[in-house]
Design a protein around this nucleic acid. Structure first.
Length: 480
RNA sequence: CGGGGCGUGGCUCAGCCUGGUAGAGCGCCUGGUUCGGGACCAGGAGGCCGGAGGUUCGAAUCCUCUCGCCCCGACCA
């Protein structure tokens, strides 16, 4: 792909984001299919990294992977009232197959609660069958009106966990446990700090009793819901007749949960760390952690440099950029925009002195290290970069959380904020979980992002809309 | 889905108003000189102008429809 300039963040955040995705060779619009994208090798490798990290944690907590059909009978969606209502506008429906009109159309799954409910009802008879802990890696389709690569595409990849439990308490614990796993992966692997919280009634998943989410803050101050888990109560159990006989011999409906993260995480990753030079990837997720750029003049000298470069690369597990006809400068730019965490320079001077030059992507700082310490220094630099990225992002998040004590104050802070303008904040305010309050925020396009599980502020107070007493401050912001 | 913008070699774009079947820069290929932050010279390949239809002797240019992308708004992982 041709390498073009990257629009500065300050000039146009949306354009910057798109440039970074394109120039970082992460993905490109599918052009032939509305709202879809092609995830390219550099982007898919990041997704594979996330899959690896998430999947191992799911397995450790007793979940098993399964796969359910892409196509769902339309009537299934209609069995849970809120669920249909929530998803109806964004469904893609198959009405013709095999050249014939179908008696009952199939919906392309927007999520799988319904099919899974159907099978749970067949599989679960006794309390001894519970809990059922399943996860599916799949693609889903939601006919979104407005799409942005990774952040919201018509088709996207995700994982959806589905579990069934004997008691409500167990289901709630499961939903919270998975939320913790999401937060752990976001913070420790992606270096993306998040706030864990509960969704308000109007923001929760269609068909859930309660939704939980992790909310991250992008560099423009907008919130990105980065993972959700739901306490589905017995809603789907009742809709799909998922009954079991409990220890007392009585029939009861199961308590279910579902939880998911998607390729949207990659969008979050990009908008958390990248800069005006392009993509910045945290070492733990970078497909290529280090590249050696050899520098030399003539044939003989080149031979020695290349030989040493390959030898060092082997020791370090790095890649050598030995493409001929490209100047070192061009190579530096190339890897920089692809987010490679560390670039090592190796030229005649280094060869003579027994050094290599190590340069970190995030800080741009060069360090000259003795060749025999290269492996050790590289590992140290990668580890340091991982924690530095997290700390930097966490500082950004903290610095942009502000308190407000009236709705006018909230509006003053967030009213003019857009994805392009930047300057977004998380405004911590006392607000009742009431649709009327959500509606008031909507007047200036803000939303309650979540009600934090851990209240880091001043506890109870007076709702800025209704004047009623509420237990804690909530996070209000503008979101993707 | 409504409003706005845009689709011309791989990329960025000019040409369109005032129809006469296409241009620039970058990239790419070949050869040579270069090589510590986007090298230079020379030669060369590559587009039928998003798609369909229409007007016309003739359409990238005008008209209609359609598809896609970007931005803004209403819906959302």
């Amino acid at each position: 792909m041709a390498e073009s300039p990257i629009t500065p963040r300050s000039k146009d955040f949306a354009a910057w984001y798109q440039d970074v995705v394109l120039q970082g060779d992460m993905a490109e619009p599918a052009e032939i299919v509305k709202g879809c994208m092609v995830i390219k090798p550099n982007g898919y490798a990041v997704w594979e990294g996330l899959q690896r990290e998430l999947d191992s944690r799911f397995k450790e907590t007793g979940h098993q992977n399964v796969y359910f059909p892409l196509l769902i009978p339309q009537s299934f969606l209609q069995k849970e009232a809120e669920h249909v209502e929530g998803f109806a506008p964004e469904l893609a429906v198959v009405t013709i197959a095999g050249g014939k009109e179908l008696e009952e159309p199939y919906v392309i799954r927007p999520t799988s609660e319904t099919v899974i409910g159907h099978f749970f009802s067949r599989w679960i008879q006794s309390w001894r069958d519970l809990p059922v802990l399943m996860n599916q890696w799949a693609n889903v389709v939601r006919w979104e009106l407005r799409t942005r690569m990774f952040l919201r595409t018509t088709e996207f990849l995700w994982q959806e966990g589905h579990t069934a439990h004997a008691t409500h308490g167990e289901a709630i614990a499961e939903a919270l446990r998975m939320l913790d796993i999401y937060a752990e992966v976001a913070e420790q692997v992606m270096a993306m700090p998040v706030i864990k919280g509960r969704k308000t009634n109007s923001e929760k998943f269609a068909g859930a009793l309660q939704s939980y989410s992790i909310e991250a803050m992008m560099q423009n101050g907008l919130a990105l819901q980065s993972g959700t888990s739901h306490d589905l109560g017995q809603n789907f159990g009742k809709a799909f007749n998922v009954q079991f006989q409990n220890e007392e011999g009585r029939l009861d409906y199961v308590w279910q949960t579902s939880w998911g993260v998607s390729t949207r995480l990659i969008g979050g990753l990009i908008m958390t760390h990248s800069d005006d030079k392009g993509l910045v990837l945290p070492p733990k997720l970078a497909p290529v952690k280090a590249v050696i750029v050899p520098i030399f003049r003539k044939g003989e000298e080149g031979g020695a440099v290349l030989e040493a470069a390959h030898k060092i690369a082997k020791e370090l597990g790095a890649k050598v950029d030995d493409r001929p006809g490209q100047t070192p400068g061009a190579k530096f730019f190339h890897w920089e925009r692809r987010g490679v965490p560390v670039v090592l320079e190796l030229g005649p001077r280094d060869l003579a002195a027994g050094n290599v030059v190590l340069k970190r992507r995030d800080t741009g700082v060069k360090e000259i290290v003795p060749r025999e310490q290269a492996a050790e220094k590289l590992q140290a630099a990668l580890a340091r970069m991982q924690t530095d990225l997290f700390e930097k992002a966490r500082k950004h998040l903290r610095d942009n959380c502000v308190l407000a004590n009236s709705i006018d104050e909230v509006q003053a802070i967030l009213g003019d904020v857009t994805a392009e303008s930047g300057g977004g904040r998380f405004v911590m305010v006392h607000l009742k979980d009431d649709p009327a309050c959500d509606a008031r925020l909507k007047e200036f396009k803000a939303t309650v992002r979540c009600i934090p599980l851990v209240d880091e502020y001043d506890g109870a107070g007076t709702c800025v809309v209704t004047g009623e007493r509420v237990e804690q401050r909530v996070v209000v912001g503008k979101a993707y």
